[in-house]
Write a protein that binds this DNA or RNA. Structure first.
Length: 530
DNA sequence: GGATCCGTTGTAGCT
DNA sequence: AAGCTACAACGGATC
């Protein structure tokens, strides 16, 4: 009798440590088929930008190398997901002839709507073929988001105190699992050609730069984690406060950890991050949520709890968590479409916004506060365009694009959610180096020089506002506004004031139209009854 | 159950 | 120069 073959289907969780499905498969023995399905449906520049696709392929190559050290290997199959897996269940997969899977394990997807639906279809296909399929709970987060909802009385936490309270109620986070020391061998007759393809083979042109030299994979992620925690003997991690980090640092020395891409793909487990952080926090006084490093992990938990609560509606406008604002519609309004294209291309005429948008496109990463600035500018601040368009661009281009986190942040920044700042708090696209909360620490204009090179010869004092430069200065710098670099797309002073008024009006209308609760009617009727 | 408090991170313009 | 005020006054949590 041939030994049973168990597949571990990788999706997120691209690691050996803290990987419950892999530990379970190692325990079962027999033959192990670690598999990643590269679905060509997603290998499209309009869905996934080149930097992120490269990060994925690097992560797969690293995963394969680590598996090989333990007697296994990763099968990367290019094909439609459900057809590929169903073929394996039937012993008739074109890419892996002769391989039949008897059981399959994967890390459970609870939140992303298309992933949940896909998994349900795969589970049904497995059942129909008599293959035992198991979705193993919870390796992507600190807590099971269903339990977070439970700890909040069925509601999702929308403030950090609520999240901290929920975390306390849920108690200890499970310790991260060790990577299995050895793994069962692959099935007999596995073709050797099924490996990680190149970016070019997937139809991409290799992008020029990687953010801070980040490379995908568990090995690089763990090294980055340990380097961050070891900085200044742990003092840096203990003192970390997000609002104090700098938005314009772009080269070798970022002011944050840049671990988010590794968390998104699961190259680094959130539970391992938390456990190692606890070790470092034990070394002395440390910052607290929301601003601390632990707070950053808690925001992720909040995003997932809210996304679970609201499902597909979490990405829609309006929705039960998203105020109805009459944004200009780029689908029907040519001027709005042009503004959207200018924002996306980094050609708004505001160098800070443009540098950030070009950095995003080119490297797949921008600092948190730069995300705030460009998101506010696109929506309530200046361009009056729907946040869902911005979320689409971020989802495509960010290395760390994560459905729940991305929508949670856009809902907040667009001003439409309960966790949004007051709508009249609008970021200036011409940040003041001394007092802006965007922490633009770039008096020399190096950030603009790097990503908006057509302004390189402009004196530093005009770098973030070229339209204020005298004509002779512009001419000497070779800048022709409206030609070599755009004039400001909108006049921020005028436009933001206008938009604040429009936003207020829309919110008042929403409140007036709110059908459900009788907050003003109730007391009256009660009084009448009494 | 109504009042009060609080929420990771604003900016401009003034003294 | 640091600190104040105006802007305009949300909505969920808490007691």
């Amino acid at each position: 009798m041939a030994p049973k073959t168990t597949a571990v289907w990788f999706r997120k969780c691209l690691r050996l440590h803290d990987n419950a499905p892999l530990v379970e498969a190692a325990k079962r023995g027999g033959r192990l088929l670690p598999i990643f399905v590269l679905d060509p449906h997603f290998a499209r520049p309009e869905f996934v930008g080149a930097p992120r696709y490269r990060f994925l392929l690097e992560s797969l190559a690293d995963l394969d190398a680590s598996l090989r050290k333990r007697g296994s290997r990763l099968c990367v199959v290019r094909g439609e997901t459900e057809a590929t897996l169903d073929g394996l269940f039937a012993g008739a997969c074109d890419a892996l002839p002769g391989v039949k899977v008897d059981a399959i394990l994967w890390e459970e997807e609870l939140v992303e709507p298309w992933g949940v639906a896909r998994d349900a279809r795969v589970a049904a296909a497995a059942k129909a073929r008599g293959v035992a399929a198991s979705a193993v709970a919870g390796g992507h987060l600190l807590f099971d988001p269903r339990e977070v909802l439970g700890a909040c009385g069925g509601k999702a936490p929308t403030t950090m105190p609520a999240m901290v309270k929920a975390a306390a109620a849920l108690g200890a986070v499970p310790a991260p699992l060790e990577a299995p020391a050895t793994l069962p061998p692959p099935p007999d007759g596995l073709p050797d050609v099924v490996g990680v393809p190149t970016l070019e083979a997937m139809g991409y042109e290799a992008p020029p730069a990687a953010a801070f030299g980040v490379a995908g994979g568990e090995s690089a992620g763990l090294a980055r984690l340990e380097a961050a925690l070891a900085r200044d003997g742990g003092a840096w991690a203990r003192a970390f406060e997000k609002p104090k980090t700098k938005s314009t640092k772009f080269d070798v020395d970022p002011s944050t950890t840049v671990l988010s891409p590794y968390l998104k793909f699961g190259c680094v487990s959130a539970r391992l991050f938390r456990a190692r952080l606890a070790d470092v926090y034990a070394g002395g006084p440390h910052a607290q949520p929301p601003t601390s490093l632990l707070g950053q992990l808690y925001f992720r938990e909040m995003a997932y709890a809210n996304a679970l609560k609201h499902g597909a509606a979490f990405a829609q406008s309006p929705s039960p968590v998203c105020a109805d604002i009459p944004w200009d519609d780029p689908a029907t309004d040519a001027a709005a479409a042009a503004r959207l294209r200018a924002w996306e291309a980094g050609r708004t005429g505001y160098p800070f916004v443009d540098a950030a948008m070009r950095q995003l496109k080119e490297t797949g990463w921008i600092h948190h506060l730069a995300r705030h600035a460009v998101a506010c500018f696109l929506t309530r601040g200046d361009l009056w365009l729907p946040w869902t368009e911005g979320a689409r661009v971020f989802d495509r281009d960010l290395l760390d694009a994560d459905w729940a986190v991305n929508n949670f942040n856009w809902l907040g920044l667009a001003g439409v959610a309960s966790w949004s700042p007051p709508f009249f708090r609008v970021y200036s696209p011409v940040p003041n180096h001394k007092q802006s909360s965007l922490n633009v620490d770039d008096a020399a204009g190096a950030y603009v020089d790097r990503f908006v090179p057509e302004l390189r010869k402009l004196p530093a004092k005009y770098k973030y506002a070229p339209w204020t430069a005298p004509a002779a200065v512009l001419a000497a710098a070779g800048v022709v506004l409206g030609d070599t670099y755009p004039r400001p797309l909108v006049d921020h002073k005028v436009q933001s004031k206008d938009n604040i008024a429009r936003f207020k009006e829309a919110q008042q209308r929403n409140r007036a139209n709110k059908p459900k609760p009788p907050p003003k009617g109730a007391p009256k009727t009660k009084k009448q009854k009494v």
